[in-house]
Amino acid sequence: MPISGDDHTGIHIKEQRRLARLTQRELADRIPYSYSWLTQVECGARPASVDFTAAVARALRIDVTVLTGQPYVTQLQEDRLAELIRPIREAMDVYDLGDDPALTTRTAGELVDAVEDLCAQVRAARLHAVAAALPDLIIELTALCWRTPSTELWRALAAAYRTAHDVTVKIGYFDLAGVALDRLGWAAERASDPCLAAIRQYFRALVYFREGEYAIGRRLIRSGHAVLDPGDQSREALAVAGQLHLGGSVLSARAADRSAAADHIASAREHASRVGDASRIHWLSFGDTNVSLHEMSVAMEMRRYDDALRQAKAIRLPASMATSRRSHYYIDRARVEMELGHTEASLKSLWTARRAAPEPTRYHPQARETVRGLVHISRRTPETLGNMAAWVGL
């Protein structure tokens, strides 16, 4: 039976479709999904996958968040994360105001170390702690960059903006994440750092991955490669180039360009073979395991779920893998298992993701929609599934 409740992505799609004065048949003709698929999503009989939602948002020319309902304010308020958003926004807004002579800052070395610590904490999925500490750090770094500018400080400020992007994306404040990327670009220019500039293009490309504009996303990936110095064969440059290829692989998969996706994976694996474990280089988690994770994602995005599950089972996550990346793997695996009807395995994967990284899992739209799908296809709702559904806010 359809899932009860009137606040899910399918309902939002139905509302926006009607506002656009489209019938279900007309909307289905504009997306790479069948009429039957659309009708099932709208009534709650099928979960709205991330790629499906992106396709509908693109067809209706609206932001994905209009359909997903992000940010999930009720859960954010319960976790006391919502109250931390305004200070981050205000801290990023002082970027062009120059020095604040009345502000006493920590030393440059202390601030650089603090930036690295927050980068590590984001990967450990400690979103509340990072969001609470970030505003003061950005304000102090901004003042010190104007007071005693140096390449090291501008790089640190760029990394702090990158962290602001990471946090706000994970909890669904995508408008603020976009501001953070603009600030990252501003600081990277002053640091004269092509790797940071390329990383910004990578994250900009992921915006279009989320919004379903894959042609623009792929152009941004190419732009990121163009920013890098072709003569720079350092581990840093190779890791950034490899990460750009990983972004290109999933964008190509969403665009149904299987050949390009395979080429990107092959290039990324070649880069990984040259740099080894580069997970701490700009905290990109780049390395051979991350290439394998993206290869699984490519199969998933192209709806080759049997291939994706086979690949998922072959992956062995190293103990050094960042907690946030580990939880993402289990969220992806849960979706694949749900699509194949492996309900118990899917729920187990979701619980593993939740135990590893509670906050990112709770606010991940794919985790939410996978739970919705499990509720629908389960003949009965076990207590563990009911608990999970209530926890994510269904």
Rank of each mutant, 00 (worst) to 15 (best):
L134Y: 10
T148N: 14
I199E: 09
A129E: 14
V169Q: 00
A191S: 02
D175Y: 03
R126K: 12
R123N: 10
L184V: 03
T168M: 13
E116N: 09
R147F: 13
I139N: 13
P149A: 02
V169G: 00
P194I: 02
C195M: 08
G172H: 07
C119T: 07
A156W: 06
A158M: 09
A198V: 11
V169C: 07
T163H: 07
F174P: 00
A156H: 01
A125T: 12
R123Y: 11
F174G: 12
E116Y: 10
V179I: 11
Y173R: 05
Q121M: 06
R200G: 01
G178E: 15
T148M: 12
T142G: 05
S150K: 06
V167L: 06
L118I: 09
D182N: 14
L118T: 02
A143W: 07
R147W: 12
D166T: 10
V130S: 00
D166M: 13
A133M: 11
W154R: 09
A143D: 09
A124M: 11
E152Q: 08
V179K: 11
A131M: 14
L153G: 08
C195H: 10
T151L: 11
E152V: 07
E140Y: 11
A120T: 13
I171Y: 00
A188L: 07
A120D: 07
A197I: 12
D117C: 04
A197T: 15
A159M: 08
E152A: 14
F174K: 14
H128M: 04
A129W: 10
E189I: 04
L141S: 01
A124K: 07
A158W: 04
R190V: 02
A120S: 15
C195G: 10
Q201H: 14
W146L: 08
Y161I: 02
S150G: 10
L137W: 02
A198P: 00
W154S: 11
P149S: 03
R200Y: 06
Y202E: 14
E152Y: 01
G185Y: 08
P194Q: 04
E140Q: 11
A156E: 04
L153N: 05
A180C: 13
I199L: 15
A159C: 15
R190H: 10
V130L: 04
I139S: 15
D166G: 15
A177T: 10
V167D: 02
A180H: 12
A132C: 03
L118E: 00
A129I: 05
P135Y: 04
A129M: 03
R162V: 01
T148D: 14
P194H: 01
V169K: 01
L127T: 11
D166Y: 12
A188D: 00
D175G: 14
L176H: 07
W186N: 01
R162N: 13
C195A: 15
E189V: 05
T168H: 12
C195P: 00
T168V: 15
T151N: 05
Y173M: 13
D175K: 12
L157Q: 04
Y161L: 05
G172A: 03
L137N: 00
P149V: 03
A120G: 07
V167A: 05
L153W: 06
T151S: 09
Y173C: 08
A160S: 12
L137I: 00
P135C: 06
L134R: 08
G185V: 13
